[in-house]
């Protein structure tokens, strides 16, 4: 474990806590894409299939459980919580994410560490995570004004993978024969997809104005 990876995991955890806070405090999920939350639930379930078979550390197992449980809890809230579900932007959150799931799985069948069920699903989860934010970014563009907690959620969600890239560089430089081509390539694509969001987030922070993404 190095400081970049720890910062990445803590940033990722923070983003999830911010989203839970937003939904709990405002009893609303306006501005949040349920499709992105469902994609993230799929990402965590298929990435952590080894949750019960491979024990790496208490930290690793604990975080995996937190990620799976929180993503499922958020999807449950947005679908079934009597108050929260009413504020879901159903008519704006229309990204047809079936193609993202299909393309990620197709790519995983071609490019994986090993051709086994667990490894193909692991690669699938890596590719899917790279594009999982797209429905959320589209929703932000369509919904105009973005509330602070939702903006912070997306910001830290994008930042965590940037820390992971620093972690991969650090490990590549310090550990012999360390390579993470699948996660690394996908992580760069994932972080790049946030580029314009980061730009408008920085502008809103500098001008102390409301975050606004151009339609």
């Amino acid at each position: 474990m190095n400081v970049f990876r720890l910062a990445g995991d803590m940033t990722h955890l923070l983003s999830i806590l911010l989203l839970l806070l937003k939904i709990y405090a405002t009893k609303s999920c306006s501005g949040v894409s349920r499709k992105t939350q469902e994609l993230y639930a799929i990402v965590f379930i298929f990435r952590y299939l080894d949750l019960f078979t491979d024990f790496i550390s208490v930290y690793n197992t604990f975080m995996k459980v937190v990620f799976i449980a929180s993503s499922l809890a958020i999807v449950w809230c947005m679908r079934f919580h009597p108050v929260v579900r009413r504020s879901y932007d159903r008519e704006l959150d229309t990204f047809r994410y079936f193609f993202l799931v299909g393309a990620s799985f197709a790519l995983a069948l071609i490019w994986h560490e090993k051709f086994s069920v667990q490894e193909v699903f692991w690669a699938f989860s890596i590719y899917l995570e790279a594009v999982a934010i797209l429905p959320q970014l589209v929703l932000l563009q369509r919904s105009g004004n973005v509330d602070n907690l939702t903006g912070q959620y997306v910001f830290f969600l994008g930042a965590y993978r940037a820390f992971y890239i620093l972690n991969w560089i650090y490990r590549y430089l310090t550990e012999p024969r360390f390579t993470r081509w699948i996660a690394g390539t996908s992580g760069v694509v994932q972080t790049a997809l946030y580029a314009d969001f980061f730009y408008y987030y920085f502008i809103s922070w500098k001008n102390n104005s409301k975050l606004k993404l151009p339609a």
């Binding site: 990876r5 491979d54 992971y164």
Partner: peptide
């Protein structure tokens, strides 16, 4: 063991 080596990250 090598599987644990390259899936040690979240």
């Amino acid at each position: 063991l090598n599987k644990i080596l390259y899936h040690d990250e979240l």
